[in-house]
Design a protein around this nucleic acid. Structure first.
Lengths: 146, 146
DNA sequence: GCCCTCCTTGTAGTTCCTACAGCGTTGCCG
DNA sequence: CGGCAACGCTGTAGGAACTACAAGGAGGGC
């Protein structure tokens, strides 16, 4: 069991692109590892753990900024985990908001598509839905492109 | 009822930031309008309609590339709207994929948070979930950050 | 003539990577 | 020992869809 590994190995172990690992290092999420004579990065198990943490959090959709905070918090094991809880709950709220938006979206897309009989564009219900109705209802969409 | 309007008016009418309108113009989604002596853009009702279309499609989450195609298709009213239908359906598939992902995400976040008793970080269940379990199950997250 | 608002252009920043380009290093085969 | 592929290095640019300045010009009310 090798205690040290190259970036390629770490990449495979964590299913993370090499460039992404370097990006995390530049962003200060991963500490810069030692280098070999040939200037190659050599990672230790601690890096592997930290990177796994980051990837898992990213998989759950936490933004890097939040992950940075989580990592700092988790480094001080004696501290209360209130802040951790708050970050997670905040994120949950965001996810739930996005879910609601997407559900509305799907409903509208469903409706749009079900109406399309695939004739000519001139009477395509999809295009119609998108066009501003001159006399019809405004028919607002999700109305939150940002 | 003014037939011509400035960019600010158009912005208000369509609830679109001025910069975004110029961005759409640069991106070729909105035709470049005429200018006044003072070099101000002057928009006509046709611009308003086109921009409304774009905004509505964006509100439904269509990417600009798809909107570009939709606009081209809708310009030729005699063409079959098969392609339109396909774009919409593709988009629906994407939305549904995202919904599934987010639902899984919410479940995991819910679980995570419900386990947290807000003691110290040392035994925080949220941090635990993110840490790679040395003996525990891998506990993969959504596993698809990108 | 002043002042405030609106408009102009252009550039850079956001988020989270991804994709080169152009080079140096390592390891293995013969 | 030569050669080659695979791997690593740095640095920069791109992408999606805007957003946010900065620095200045134009228009209209008082």
């Amino acid at each position: 069991m090798p205690r040290q590994m190259t970036i390629g190995t770490l990449s495979r172990e964590t299913d993370t692109k090499v460039e992404t690992i370097r990006f995390y290092e530049k962003s200060g999420l991963l500490p810069a590892p030692d280098r070999t004579e040939g200037n190659y990065r050599t990672y230790e198990p601690s890096h592997l753990r930290r990177l796994s943490f980051i990837r898992r959090a990213r998989g759950l959709g936490f933004p890097l900024e939040a992950i940075r905070t989580l990592l700092n918090l988790s480094d001080d094991r004696s501290r209360s985990c209130e802040a951790v809880d708050r970050i997670a709950k905040d994120h949950l709220v965001q996810v739930e908001q996005k879910l609601a938006d997407l559900n509305a979206l799907r409903a509208e897309l469903d409706r749009m598509i079900s109406l399309c009989s695939c004739g000519t564009v001139a009477d395509c219900r999809i295009i119609d839905t998108l066009l501003p109705g001159p006399a019809g209802s405004p028919s607002r969409a999700t109305e939150n492109p940002r």
